[in-house]
């Protein structure tokens, strides 16, 4: 243990992930002993430490916003608006959506599929129609 850390500090016994707030921003490193501040700077220069932001909030400026905690909110996300100091929770579309796409003159509705799938199917349908149209026009020119 370093001399500047007194005897009452808990002893590290094995590899430990240490979040160290003595520098700003805080740094995280893995070690079996407490680092002094100078040793911590050396570890940071050697790319053996990563910056850590308290509460997982990245630094922000006025006017910027961030989105976080997507995994915690299944149907939405939280957005922090620093100008108003508010966190806004935005809900996504309901889980059961219906996708519509054209197949020739017909309009199909597929329950539970995504919008992207509908777009892809629509494009494929349009390509097939174009190929058919080209073929039929070619056969008319060369009987």
């Amino acid at each position: 243990m370093d001399n500047e850390i007194k005897n009452l500090a808990p002893q590290l016994q094995r590899s430990t992930a240490i979040t160290d707030s003595r520098l700003s921003p805080a740094l995280r490193y893995v070690s079996a002993s407490w680092h002094t501040e100078s040793k911590l700077k050396v570890a940071a220069r050697a790319d053996m430490a990563s910056p850590v932001f308290e509460n997982s909030i990245p630094p922000f400026n006025l006017g910027r916003s961030w989105r976080a905690a997507v995994s915690k909110f299944r149907f939405g996300f939280q957005e922090y608006r620093p100008l108003t100091n508010k966190v806004v929770t935005t809900s996504r579309q309901p889980k059961h959506t219906y996708t519509r796409f054209f197949f020739g003159p017909l309009l199909f509705t597929l329950p539970g599929s995504s919008l992207e799938l509908g777009v892809i199917l629509g494009i494929v349908t349009a390509l097939i129609l174009v190929v058919f149209a080209l073929r039929s026009s070619g056969s008319r020119r060369n009987p």
Binding site: P10, L12, T16, R28, V30
Partner: peptide, 28 residues
């Protein structure tokens, strides 16, 4: 100083994202 014995896992370190495993977690 705070330490939680037995709170282990793996963390990415530095720009190179070097993986490092740990057995305990601590804060200063």
């Amino acid at each position: 100083y705070s330490i939680v014995r037995g709170a282990g896992g793996t963390v990415e370190l530095g720009i190179a994202k070097t993986l490092a495993s740990y057995k305990d977690s601590a804060t200063i």
